[in-house]
């Protein structure tokens, strides 16, 4: 018998601090699987966010930098400009990337900065205990929208992939989910592609992973993944939003 599935080598033995059923663990594993598959552990540098994934630096075996809230794309820019031969990725949540760090995100994208961004959208601030996120759904009840997100006073959710794909520069933008086996497998492919794009010098790749927060959504892990299917994915449709490899192909013809 041969091993067909095991913990990827580029994850440390540190036990994840995430709540039971939290998909952060799945997404960490997908990132590590991509690093393993591409054989880039020794030259990869990850940037951890502020939020639930703040301690990601303990979980990946590659070199890691912990960034201030929202600043990961700027820190990654510094790392990549200093070490262009290395592989730089950020791992950020929705509050980090789409609220406090929106300027850093948009400008890294419009520079087509040759980095890989893993953006975890679970429509809530997890670490601080379940406050409204820029991606919280209309009517979603959170600690800071206790009567449901009111579009008149609290604004509409931000669809990051749609927003960024309006820019000319970014190379690859895809939205995936991790709520079932099929979607996890697609997410795995997308994340690996985002790393491969960087290795090939293509530029900015962002993978939005629609995720869940069972604890702060007040649901069982099973119910939370069902909610992703029923509520999140209809608002945040999965798919490729920008792929400039098609332009590359056109130019080649």
């Amino acid at each position: 018998m041969a091993i067909v599935f095991q913990k990827p080598a580029s994850l440390t033995d540190k036990e994840l601090h995430y709540c039971p059923g939290c998909p952060h663990g799945i997404i960490h594993r997908l990132v590590a699987q991509a690093i393993d598959a591409l054989g880039i552990e020794g030259k990869t540098i990850g940037v951890a966010p502020v939020g639930c994934a703040v301690m990601a630096y303990d979980y990946f075996t590659c070199d890691m930098v912990e960034a201030a809230h929202g600043r990961a794309p700027a820190v990654a820019t510094g790392l990549k400009r200093s070490l262009p031969e290395n592989v730089i990725f950020t791992y950020q949540g929705d509050g980090d990337l789409a609220s406090i760090g929106m300027a850093e995100t948009v400008h890294a994208a419009t520079r087509n900065e040759n980095i890989t961004i893993i953006f975890v959208n679970n429509a809530i601030y997890g670490m601080t205990g379940g406050q409204m996120a820029p991606t919280s759904l209309p009517g979603q009840i959170t600690q800071t929208s206790p009567y449901g997100r009111d579009l008149k006073t609290q604004g509409y959710p931000i669809r990051v992939c749609e927003l960024l794909s309006a820019l000319d520069a970014p190379y690859y933008i895809e939205r995936v989910a991790v709520n079932n086996v099929k979607n996890v497998n697609q997410a795995k492919k997308a994340i690996e592609k985002a790393f491969r794009n960087q290795i090939e010098g293509k530029g900015f790749s962002l993978i939005e992973v629609v995720s869940a927060c069972p604890t702060n959504w007040g649901m069982t892990p099973q119910k939370a993944l069902q909610w992703v299917d029923e509520r999140m994915i209809p608002y945040y449709p999965l798919g490729v939003y920008k792929d400039r490899s098609k332009e590359d192909a056109k130019e080649a013809n």
Binding site: V65, A67, A76
Partner: peptide
């Protein structure tokens, strides 16, 4: 490497990134 950042906040965080290396 010269880069005009999108803000002073980003500029200092790019500095943080390079200083890390």
């Amino acid at each position: 490497v010269f880069l005009q950042a999108e803000s002073e906040i980003s500029a200092i965080n790019m500095v943080y990134g390079v200083a890390s290396t």
